[in-house]
């Protein structure tokens, strides 16, 4: 049985160290600007911090993957170029990219450095993945969270590179890299600015009855009764009214997190090369807890043992978890 890489998130240097200490094989992170898809306040790395982080990770046998996975916009393309040059100078092991222009630049200027295709590229077929492999020498594709296990198994046999799938964290259900919902609501683009529902536009109000209203800009996203679990204030996790329904409902998806711990043997058996944990915007506590649990579980599976299942539901959105699209087509 192959031994897949455990790929873990880091929003800060301390989180990166926590991930490395907890047994991450690879850690992904980004710079403090629009070049990556988690461009949030107080998060991410300066060039100096990245350099130190690479040294720390390498000393512990972990790789560092730099996410430059937003879409470079005309007029400030140099920001993405500089991020790539700076990452190369810091000695990162791979770049995670979505934009064709950024991929072309790195393939030319930093030839030989590994390129991973971000989930933001939305490549969900062998034809799409093989296009990026042929054009830019992409070595790994991060799959959108929309394929069933059987589909991943089949896909693996038809492509020319490694595959990485998400196993825990935010259950993004919009095709990533193709979503302008935040921009429609508040004028900040997920693709161009690297932020989905940025905190600067989110407001919570609590009334005297304890009901909390979540707003994104001027739009009410949801209302939570005092004893109701909450989710991220994103448009795709909100409740709406519509004519076929009598009551407000989660039109896209309820607040819920992906957790594929029970599917690890099947995923590894399907030939998945890397297993990814989402959550650069979370915390040291999150990364320590989730990485430790998955490290143990993966090691057990690779050694042919039954993995010990750990309860991670306290860390999940809405305190609920799902196997989402991976388990059944019914999810669609």
């Amino acid at each position: 049985m192959n031994r897949p890489e455990l790929v873990c998130p880091a929003g800060t240097p301390a989180m990166l160290r926590a991930a490395a200490d907890a047994g991450a094989d690879a850690i992904y992170c980004g710079f403090q600007n629009a070049t990556n898809a988690r461009n949030f306040a107080g998060l991410n790395f300066t060039p100096n911090q990245l350099q130190d982080a690479v040294a720390y990770a390498h000393a512990r046998g972990a790789k560092v993957l730099l996410a430059i996975n937003s879409f470079a916009t005309a007029g400030r393309y140099d920001l993405w170029q500089k991020a790539a040059d700076c990452g190369a100078a810091c000695g990162v092991d791979a770049f995670i990219v979505a934009d064709i222009g950024v991929a072309a630049y790195i393939a030319e200027r930093h030839a030989g450095r590994r390129l991973h295709l971000s989930v933001q590229a939305a490549a969900s077929s062998p034809e799409a993945i093989n296009f990026y492999c042929r054009e830019f020498g992409v070595r790994r594709a991060v799959l959108p969270r929309i394929l069933t296990l059987a589909e991943i198994h089949q896909l693996k046999t038809e492509i020319d590179c490694e595959i990485e799938t998400f196993i825990f964290g935010n259950h993004g259900l919009m095709v990533e890299g193709r979503c302008s919902l935040t921009n429609y609501a508040v004028g900040i683009s997920t693709n161009m600015d690297g932020a989905c529902s940025p905190a600067s536009e989110v407001h919570y109000d609590r009334n005297t009855a304890g009901v909390v209203t979540a707003r994104l800009g001027s739009h009410v996203i949801d209302r939570f009764a005092p004893t109701e679990q909450a989710g991220y204030p994103t448009i795709c996790k909100g409740r709406y009214c519509t004519s076929p329904r009598d009551e407000p409902y989660y039109a896209f998806e309820e607040p819920i997190s992906l957790n594929l711990m029970e599917m690890l043997p099947a995923l590894i058996g399907a030939g998945v090369d890397a297993l990814k944990i989402e959550g650069r915007q979370r915390s040291r506590a999150y990364v320590s807890s989730v990485v430790t649990s998955f490290r143990r579980a993966i090691d057990a599976v690779v050694a042919g043992r039954k993995p010990e299942l750990v309860d991670l539901v306290a860390l999940t959105e809405g305190q609920k978890q799902t196997q989402g699209a991976f388990a059944t087509k019914k999810w669609r």
Binding site: V175, W331, R332
Partner: peptide, 15 residues
């Protein structure tokens, strides 16, 4: 304006 795509059908879900 097309704003987003998913693998899930939201029309079916609404019903």
């Amino acid at each position: 304006i097309p704003l987003a795509l998913s693998a899930r059908c939201f029309h079916a879900r609404a019903h």
